[in-house]
């Protein structure tokens, strides 16, 4: 009578097996989600960084935007690429590349192509890097 109403060893083994089978992918999902969150945060911060640099550049007077290619350190010390007080503190985890290209017509600069590329580590422990690029143009409207 007692053997019929109790939990059998087989049942416990099956239950543990079932939990083990379910928990493994669950942990994987949590782990993946955690990594995704890290990636999203990194990408969002990279995006903010790129937007901030871009906004600062396009808000400068046209003649103060100097053509050329600039590295992270140039961007941190904005006077290298702009005749104006511009400084953007970029986190060590990010590297930026700024490219300003002057487009001329009949010797006169008519607009500038501006490209901001931000490279970042996808996650803390990842060796691979991702990059992110925003491009726009700035018009020369002197009058």
């Amino acid at each position: 009578m007692n053997s019929k109403s109790g939990i059998s060893l087989i049942e416990i083994v099956v239950a543990i097996g079932l939990l083990a089978a379910v928990l493994a992918p669950v942990f994987l999902i949590f782990s993946s989600g955690n990594r995704n969150m890290e990636m999203t945060e990194a990408e969002f911060r990279a995006h903010n960084c790129a937007i901030e640099i871009m906004e600062q550049i396009i808000s400068l007077p046209y003649k103060h935007i100097k053509s050329g290619t600039y590295t992270s350190s140039d961007v941190k010390n904005g006077l290298n690429f702009a005749n104006s007080a511009i400084l953007y503190k970029i986190s060590e985890n990010y590297e930026s590349e700024l490219k300003v290209e002057d487009m001329k017509e009949k010797g006169k600069s008519i607009f500038k192509k501006v490209s901001v590329k931000v490279s970042y580590q996808a996650t803390k422990n990842s060796a691979s890097k991702r990059s992110f690029t925003i491009k726009t143009m700035v018009a020369n409207e002197t009058n």
């Binding site: 019929k4 109403s5 109790g6 939990i7 059998s8 049942e11 416990i12 099956v14 239950a15 543990i16 079932l18 939990l19």
Partner: peptide, 10 residues
């Protein structure tokens, strides 16, 4: 425990 409870809980 009754028979099958452990499985149900799992």
């Amino acid at each position: 425990p009754k028979k099958g409870v452990a499985l149900a809980v799992a």
